[in-house]
């Protein structure tokens, strides 16, 4: 029965490894959450309490007084409009690339790949330069168009791969059954694109919701700040007042984590830039 002992040992070892990985991955987040729920005087106490002995929402209430709802609202508007723009413009482009041969098609694909590989950090100064000269800085619409331009290539790429998995015969059948190109796109192809749309939509949604770099550069006025920009200015405003700072962080990340856990499969396919299985 030698191998039995080995199996038990292996299981024990892998359990320990798993616990270690989970602690490293989650500790900063759990610690932040726990801090955001502690009363101010306990936050800096030594030794630190991992599970707060006393729970309070006072820091979250502070945030509301600090216009938090406006920032959350701005982030939601920017994220949702960006998602809708990206999906509409991206899906029709992906359909065209997937279904037609036309002059310049490979050039379009090349442009898409090129833009996908430009790091956003190297776009911010040029973008700021242009947006400032056409007066689109410090406006939500400016953020929306930039996000759309940055995320369109990945949406097109995901949808292109996805529509590629839908047999061409399906749209041919619809056309023979009496539907025009556009009608067959609407009635047959689009209803079958669900998983691809969810995957790319979530990708864009998290990008727009999480983006800090672009927004920090473009936005200065309080009334149009998105949540990450607000958190960044809290960092200066609250200084070492970690309570409200971490509370605002939690407001920003909890929805994303929830959506990630619910739609994990689609997230992964968005990250790998392609096919959704099942």
């Amino acid at each position: 029965m030698h191998y039995r002992r080995e199996i038990v040992l292996r299981k024990l070892l892998s359990f320990c490894v798993n616990v270690f990985i989970a602690v490293v991955a989650l500790a900063p987040i759990v610690w932040g959450l726990s801090t955001s729920l502690k009363p101010t005087q306990k936050i800096l106490s030594l030794p630190p309490e991992i599970i707060p002995s006393e729970i309070t929402f006072v820091h979250y209430r502070t945030l509301i007084a600090q216009n938090m709802l406006t920032y959350v609202g701005n982030s939601m508007i920017v994220s949702l409009v960006t998602v809708m723009l990206c999906l509409t413009i991206g899906t029709v482009a992906a359909y065209s690339l997937s279904r037609f041969e036309f002059k310049g098609r490979s050039l379009v694909l090349l442009i898409i790949i090129a833009v996908m590989s430009i790091p956003i950090a190297s776009l911010i100064v040029p973008s700021y330069t242009l947006m400032a000269s056409i007066g689109l800085t410090d406006k939500l619409v400016g953020l929306i168009v930039l996000y759309t331009a940055y995320q369109l290539p990945i949406v097109i790429w995901i949808m292109y791969a996805y529509i590629g998995t839908i047999p061409r015969e399906i749209d041919n059948a619809a056309m023979i059954d009496g539907y025009s190109r556009l009608a067959s796109l609407r009635k047959v192809v689009l209803p079958l694109c669900g998983p691809g749309l969810i995957a790319s939509g979530l990708f864009v949604l998290t990008f727009a919701w999480n983006d800090f770099v672009v927004a920090a550069v473009m936005i200065t006025s309080d009334s149009v700040k998105t949540l990450p920009v607000a958190i960044y200015s809290f960092l200066g405003y609250f200084g070492r007042e970690w309570g409200p700072l971490l509370a605002s962080s939690m407001v920003s990340i909890i929805p994303v984590i929830a959506i990630f856990i619910l739609f994990q499969r689609y997230f992964l396919s968005g990250m790998t830039g392609g096919s959704v299985k099942g």
């Binding site: 047999p167 015969e169 399906i170 041919n172 059948a173 056309m175 023979i176 539907y179 025009s180 079958l192």
Partner: peptide, 18 residues
Amino acid sequence: PPDRRDIAMVFQNYALYP
């Protein structure tokens, strides 16, 4: 265009709308 030719077609993979 195909939709105005008054034809019907059965495809190799059937192309049923899933």
